[in-house]
Design a protein around this nucleic acid. Structure first.
Lengths: 215, 215
DNA sequence: CATTTGCCTATGTGATCACAAATTGAGCCC
DNA sequence: GGGCTCAATTTGTGATCACATAGGCAAATG
């Protein structure tokens, strides 16, 4: 049956599915190693295999999904080496992004960051892993948007995407109700215009999750 | 007509097409703004639109191709800001990769780099832009492979891919028959185990193309 | 009871088709 | 001569189909 789509203005079907899956993965709503099928995705979003295939392909290209040799797709189960490498990439990219955002960070932005940070603290106190990841990434993205470096930000988001499923199980292991200490340091450094302090705080925040892995 | 492909072991059709297009783009064999069509690609590689679409999608996801709002695909025409940002990314990533490769760089690797570097010099003397880009990237990839950081290397290659078409026109503008001075510095720093020198040489080499753009 | 074998279903791949939108180009009007 | 209109063609999108193969489950075997 051919469905005469009513002159859709906002993006094609595969774009919609891509966005939906991407958000799920990045926010840690899917566990590592979870299998996906094209027909299953198509059924869920009420489309044929074609758009499902394209969104999956795209996510595989970005490293958000793993493609087995037989073509089956699943969320990746990252090795410790891979996790460390991705954390190093986060540090490299996000320190630079924060540094570039610093001279452009005015009070309105800092207020905004503080407000988002309250959401982070709330998610932590409620042991809400997905909420934590989402608001934490929003904190970082809001800051980095000021860097006016779209390619660099896109690359950082790709790393977030690859770490998504792993972050869930990582933060699920986190028991202490720790308020986002590094976020406070980031905000303080922004206020003070302290670039070295900002770089340190971002690096510390970004590699924080790693500590509970190796330590 | 259904073509019963004879139990192809080495990769699917879209994989083959993806590899072919990717190499072309990364090596600067396609000019910026060049349009591609799914049916055209399919005709060239003797397949239907389906595998052509998947390879194109994948390349779009990697930033190697630009997708217009109407769905047409072409190689990107980068703005100067974008080029500068991608060069900054190269510097960030490749300095780190070189630094990680340094402790593992033994004589066999240095010999290999010197041999590749002769190919670079030859391509420069022959004004062969594609040959220059290819052997130059081979030089860098050979060094970075020693870093044992696959995710980081993949990210660097993605940047190369995005810069591919632009590099062609950029190096086409280069008139002087300049031998790869920075490459010699890189090799010297590797020999001496001089990390600061290596970082400087790589940064200089990687942002070299930018100088003729802004200067 | 554990292991293996074999069949059946689920799944990915690529081809083809129908359709809508965009592009192009020729003809026409001012 | 230049700009505009409209139709023909090109092009991307999504659906559906045929096919090969991989995975899983059940029965048979030791």
């Amino acid at each position: 049956m051919v469905s005469p789509r009513p002159s859709e203005v906002s993006g094609s079907a595969h774009e919609r599915i891509y966005r939906a899956l991407r958000t799920r993965i990045m926010h840690g709503e899917i566990a590592p190693g979870q299998a996906l099928t094209l027909r299953g995705i198509g059924r869920e979003f009420d489309v044929s295999m074609t758009p499902a295939r394209e969104s999956v392909r795209r996510l595989v290209a970005e490293g958000a999904l793993f493609l087995s040799t037989s073509g089956r797709v699943s969320t990746p189960e990252l090795s410790n080496e891979r996790i460390e490498e991705l954390a190093a990439l986060r540090a490299l990219l996000e320190v630079e992004l924060a540094s570039r955002a610093l001279p452009r960070a005015h009070m309105a932005l800092i207020d905004r960051l503080q407000s988002i940070n309250m959401g982070v603290a709330e998610a932590v106190s409620k042991r809400d892993a997905v909420g934590y990841i989402r608001s934490n990434l929003e904190f970082h993205r809001t800051l980095y948007l000021r860097a006016q470096a779209p390619a660099m930000l896109a690359m950082a988001e790709t790393v977030w995407l690859q770490l998504g499923p792993t972050m869930r199980s990582l933060y699920g292991r986190l028991r202490r109700t720790e308020p986002p200490r590094d976020h406070k340091l980031i905000i303080a450094a922004l206020k003070a215009g302290d670039e070295p302090g900002l770089r340190l705080a971002v690096r510390s925040d970004v590699t924080q999750g790693l500590r509970m892995l190796t330590g």
